[in-house]
Amino acid sequence: MTEAELSLFLEASVRLGIPLALAALGETISERSGVINIGLEGSIIAGALGGALGALAFGSAGLGVLTGAAAGMLVAAVFAAFAVGLGADQIITGTAVTLGGLGMTGAVYQARFGATGTELSLPTLQALPLPFLERIPLVGSALFAQAPTAYVAYVLAPMLWYWLFRTPAGLELRAVGEAPDAAKAAGVRVRRVRFLATLVGGVLAGVAGAHLALAHAGTFAENMSAGKGFIAIAVVVLGRWNPLLVLGAALFFGAASALQFFLQALGFDLPYQLFLALPYLLTLAALGGWVGRARAPAALAIPWESE
């Protein structure tokens, strides 16, 4: 690879990693509270459609991100109502929400734009190069000439880390995810914490979806989330439920995705699926304890019922 190619590769890595980072940071918060939101994919696709419709209605990509966030939150609220409110099984509820989200967005899209899917032309999120920072050799333009949503992820990761590990509220959230009965005995309102954490996860997944529609594609397509919700859940594991590591893991997954495109473009004969599989192998390694010990919150995916 020449330097120009390398620079392009890095830029693509970050671009592909950002939506994963946003969704995974949100999922980190909800999983730390003991809720595994398999419905993340549903929030992402809802965020993509919500973002597209919002951008179209208001003629502004920025407002589109907000409507996307709202759509993602709405889907997460449905999940939380069942999984947290009623104590339903999180895996089954999440699967239903994902499949429902994919189907509903497709239906809305077709009802609005016709079965053939008129090519949507949306206001897009333009790259916003940061002065000085973008001039850092090699990585500058990759990291700092991105859509504004990328900067949200950069800032959010350390903020969430500080919040989780250094504030009383973060302590309460982690306690809820580890031992909800103990948290209740300490005066924490378990259900409320889990509900809010799931909504935060939905907001960020919605932003990730809006980013896909408005910064990447400039349009909406059915199933355009393409499994990113599930990848984000793997990213959380690889990042060991730590926002800073999760950001790094998301960029790493982004790089792996970028690599397959590059190898194809460069005419390599190796099956690109090999590179696509690499991050998942690492995730398995993390779960198996070979890349440091990854320990999920003890009460993850266990519905909690108060007496």
């Binding site: 309460e172 982690r174 306690a175 580890e178 103990a182 005995a185 300490a186 924490v188 320990r295 003890a298």
Partner: peptide, 16 residues
């Protein structure tokens, strides 16, 4: 016991 096993003694005492 109503303690969170993976938190430190201090964190458990700070909780709430």
């Amino acid at each position: 016991f109503t303690l969170v096993p993976r938190l430190s003694a201090l964190e458990n005492l700070a909780l709430g």
